[in-house]
Design a binder for these strands. Structure first.
Length: 880
RNA sequence: GGGCCUGUAGCUCAGCUGGUUAGAGCGCCACGCUUACACCGUGGACGUCGGGGGUUCGAGUCCCUCCGGGCCCA
């Protein structure tokens, strides 16, 4: 045995053990392990440019508990960490942090230094941002994310994540780019990726297309306008619209097929006011009879219903909106009337807002506006990161098939969902609802700068027009490439943009198009096939419930298409952190706590305890109180361990089960054996909360009852000769300690490692997970935890008389008569020596069976002291 | 409008496939510095299990309905 410190402490354990674990490679992955012996985790790569919050600490702790449990069970745990530095959040942050913006038309500047450094938190106005080249911009992105990564790693290490820090990746890294581009090109080769000229959601602020998964519906104020169209005979047909500026883009009026009011109009045409364009009146079930007038104007495109009508009724495309959110400058060809042309001239080039004013004024003047516009709130689609309503514009974009327009693929993906183990299981419904409700393929083109480029070029024909339908693809061996600077085989750089030459695809891929490949990136799909075979398909994907439809689903899609399998067997879904007002914690609400400060204040074990106390899938309150309880538990483990180890004196700690001969000791071990079984079962089922609760409850019983009861016997009166009874107690204490340290190790890695270091070699985290069998063997077949409970109750009953007499627990009991329910009688009598010692009964102690009505089961198991006499406390000995 | 989760002591939560007087911790009250621990110990008080119906010999646990939170999708 090494040394037990005189004064135990949790302080400083995080740094000390992080250094040791790193030096000793405690969490290093053994890459010689076969797949069957591996437990692999597809760790969520945090968005490094986002800020760290307690939600991260919360959910990553859940994963770490799983990792540590599996490691102790003998699995070779593959637990890498990635950094998601891809995409828009980084771009935005770089703009503000360095005061720059990307202008792809500018040339690269060697040794560029940005105007600002660390302008955190403020947003720099676009006009004040210095325009720089794409390459310079990307370099700044990389510079900033490198700093973020350091901070993140420091936090994770401090928290005690048992990540193999030699295995990190970046979603923008070269390898990740190669994986993303390779996977894309294979999708393309198999016909799973394609381009299409199609209406899509467009964010005018960010100037990018937006996918279905990135939508967010918000209430947005608008006005209903009652506008009259005219039948050939002059009869007005009144519609209601919130977007009168799209009147020139109108292609039809549509009502529900069953709507009595419009039966006579179906199949006829009407003429639009102001513009004089003749449009058909059509029937479609998506028209809502009780909404407005029940007849709607269908435009190119006001909302997604317009798109549906356009597609299903084969309506013409009459687009008047540009990607910059302004109306086109040229008068559309379908507007031919003199008045219409004049009207459009008034709107041309204006924002939708100004154009609307112009149209409304004109309608009012022409008498085609009935009444004044009525204010309304309506759900409008927004880009989740944007603040202007999305427009729908037609453009050429890349798509990956995801079952959104293919019933067979959809069914296959639903089947994958049913193969996947969701924890908790009800989260599966979110997957099924999402997949079942898809209405289009996955749009992956993004008109951004910082991301993985779409790795294709297009030939330019003799007229100088790109030939979109026959993209030029690179060799996989040459990946990653950037088509905006790399030149396709068979061409020269001078041919870029020239007739007979080529152009590169200007877009990058959606973040999810890369993130959906994290198992492949982390597992070395391309760079290390040997490793990949040992870790893929992985065991676990931990993540939040909000991104089941995006991250989880898209990863399933990619794996299904590329590997014909699930990417992992199980998904662990963590809940949200709620603030004390039951609100989701978020930065905008200003209720976010800095995680590092939290860890430093309470200690990592304490914060981990709080996190581990919440079940998967369940929202948890941010509760400092719970952390304090965790801290108390960790300290208690240190102290109880110090105590248990102190009895051995200078000798070695014995763990020989055969030495446990006293019934009370056996009863304790029998209870512990049950805890081991139940906790193991719970952890194997991803229920860390139950495992912790069982271990914790047992531990407190161990401290309050068992430890108190055997104290005297374990001391052995200080005799040099150790009796069998004393040896039994000491051995049982050591066995229990040895087991409990392992049980707590996944949740409290620091405190348990500290104790382990006092008397064992190596790390508790690579020690085998405890099993019940040896404890049961030591306990024998007769022993039951009830015996310890009964003895503990008897002790509590004796203490109660002291507590009620308001005297110190040191007070001796000169005489006591204790009534014990029949069921507990034998156990109490058996442990009478220990009870007498712990209760300081110096005189006569009578135990008898309780009679009817004596005692209550709720209080000390029905054990009551019916007669007693207290002595004077002995004089206190001066402290050594 | 559809879906999922949730409502148990002042607070945070356990209560498995329905079975005797509903549990834990925190907080609270009283007491105690007992040679592991005052970041402690001992004892105590505290609940018509959101409301209302129903099924059942029996419901916190199953069904219906209403109310309140949270999230997702329309």
């Amino acid at each position: 045995m090494r040394e037990v410190p005189d004064k135990v402490s949790l302080d400083g354990l995080e740094d000390r053990f992080d250094a040791r674990w790193t030096a000793e490679g405690t969490y290093a992955f053994d890459r010689t392990a076969e797949r069957a012996d591996v437990y692999s985790i597809d760790t969520p790569p945090p968005t490094v440019s986002g800020s760290l919050h307690v939600g991260h600490v919360f959910s990553y702790t859940h994963t770490d508990v799983v990792a540590r449990f599996q490691r102790m069970r003998g699995k070779r745990v593959f637990y890498p960490m990635g950094w998601d530095d891809n995409g828009l959040p980084t771009e935005r942050r770089v703009q503000n942090y360095y005061g720059v913006r990307c202008d792809p038309s500018l040339p690269y500047v060697e040794g560029y230094e940005p105007p600002l450094q660390g302008a955190e938190g403020k947003s720099v106005k676009a006009a004040d941002q210095q325009p720089i080249s794409r390459k310079n911009f990307v370099e700044l992105c990389e510079r900033l994310t490198a700093e973020d990564e350091k901070q993140f790693e420091a936090l994770w290490r401090h928290l005690g994540l048992s990540v193999d820090w030699t295995r990190t990746y970046q979603t923008i890294g070269q390898d990740a780019q190669a994986v993303a581009q390779t996977a894309f090109l294979r999708n393309l080769a198999r016909g799973e990726a394609y381009t299409a000229e199609a209406p899509g959601l467009w964010d005018v602020t960010f100037q990018t297309a937006v996918a279905q998964a990135e939508l967010e519906a918000r209430d947005y104020p608008g006005h209903f306008h009652k506008v009259s169209f005219h039948a050939p005979d002059g009869t007005p047909v009144q519609i209601e619209t919130t977007r009168p500026e799209l009147l020139p883009a109108c292609v039809a009026l549509i009502a529900h097929p069953d709507d009595e009011r419009y039966q006579h109009l179906f199949g006829t045409t009407v003429t639009s006011p102001l513009f004089g364009v003749e449009v058909p009146v059509l029937a479609h079930p998506a028209a809502e009879p009780d909404k407005g007038a029940g007849i709607a104007m269908c435009c190119t495109f006001g909302d997604l219903t317009d798109v549906q009508w356009w597609r299903e009724l084969q309506l013409p495309t009459r687009s008047v909106l540009n990607r910059d959110g302004r109306l086109t400058r040229e008068t559309p060809e379908w507007i031919t009337s003199e008045a219409g042309v004049a009207m459009f001239a008034e709107m041309a080039g204006k924002t939708t807002f100004s154009a609307r004013t112009a149209v409304v004024d004109a309608l009012r003047a022409s008498g085609d506006l009935d009444g004044e516009p009525v204010a309304t709130q309506r759900k409008t689609n927004f880009f989740e990161k944007g603040d202007k309503p999305l427009e729908i514009v037609t453009s050429r974009q890349w798509y990956i098939r995801n079952g959104g327009r293919d019933a067979e693929l959809n069914a296959q993906l639903l089947a994958r969902g049913s193969e996947l183990g969701f924890h908790p299981d009800f989260m599966r419904v979110r997957y099924e609802n999402w997949v079942g409700g898809l209405n289009g393929d996955w749009l992956i083109s993004r008109q951004r700068f910082f991301g993985v480029p779409i790795p294709v070029w297009y030939p330019v024909d003799a007229e100088g027009q790109p030939v979109w339908d026959s993209p030029i693809v690179p060799d996989e061996a040459s990946l990653p490439i950037d088509p905006s600077s790399d030149v396709p085989a068979g061409y020269t750089a001078e041919q870029r943009g020239q007739a007979g030459g080529f152009v590169g695809d200007p877009d990058i891929m959606d973040t999810w198009a890369t993130s959906s490949l994290t198992p492949q990136i982390a597992g070395g799909w391309l760079s290390d096939p040997d490793l990949f075979a040992r870790v893929f398909p992985m065991n676990l994907r931990p993540q939040g419930q909000d991104i089941i439809r995006t991250w989880l689903f898209s990863t399933v899609v990619r794996s299904h298409l590329e590997h014909g399998s699930l990417p992992w067997s199980d998904a662990a879904i963590s809940g949200w952190i709620l603030d004390p007002d039951r609100k989701k914690m978020s930065k905008s609400k200003g209720n976010v706590v800095t995680p590092m400060g939290l860890l430093e204040e309470h200690g990592s074990d304490a914060v981990r305890y709080w996190a581990a106390s919440a079940r998967l899938g369940t929202d948890a309150a941010f509760e400092v109180g719970q952390m304090k309880i965790g801290r108390r538990l960790a300290i208690k483990i240190l102290n109880a361990s110090k105590f248990a180890l102190s009895f051995a004196g200078e000798g070695e700690i014995r763990l020989d089960p055969a030495a446990v001969t006293v019934p009370l000791d056996r009863a304790m071990l029998a209870g512990l054996a049950d805890v081991v079984d139940a906790a193991t079962e719970a952890l194997a089922a991803y229920d860390h909360t139950r495992a912790l609760e069982l271990s914790e409850t047992f531990f407190w019983t161990f401290c309050d009852d068992y430890l108190e009861l055997v104290k005297d016997r374990a001391y052995g009166g200080g005799d040099a000769e150790v009796s069998a009874e004393t040896l039994s107690a000491r051995t049982a204490l050591a066995l229990a300690l040895d087991t409990m340290l392992r049980l707590f190790a996944p949740v409290l890695p620091f405190a348990t490692e500290e104790v382990w270091s006092w008397w064992r070699d190596g790390s508790v985290h690579t020690a085998p997970w405890p099993v019940a069998a040896p404890l049961r063997a030591a306990a024998g077949t007769e022993a039951r935890l009830d015996e310890l409970t009964a003895a503990g109750n008897a002790l509590a009953a004796l203490r109660k008389i002291k507590s009620e007499a308001k005297v110190s627990m040191r007070t001796p009991i000169l005489l006591a008569e204790v009534a014990v329910p029949a069921a507990s009688l034998a156990a109490v009598e058996q442990a009478i020596g220990d009870i007498r010692g712990a209760g300081r009964v110096t005189g006569e102690l009578t135990i008898r069976e309780a009679s009817e009505g004596e005692g209550s089961v709720d209080v000390q198991g029905g054990i009551v002291v019916v007669r007693s006499e207290l002595g004077e406390p002995e004089a206190r000995k001066p402290k050594a």
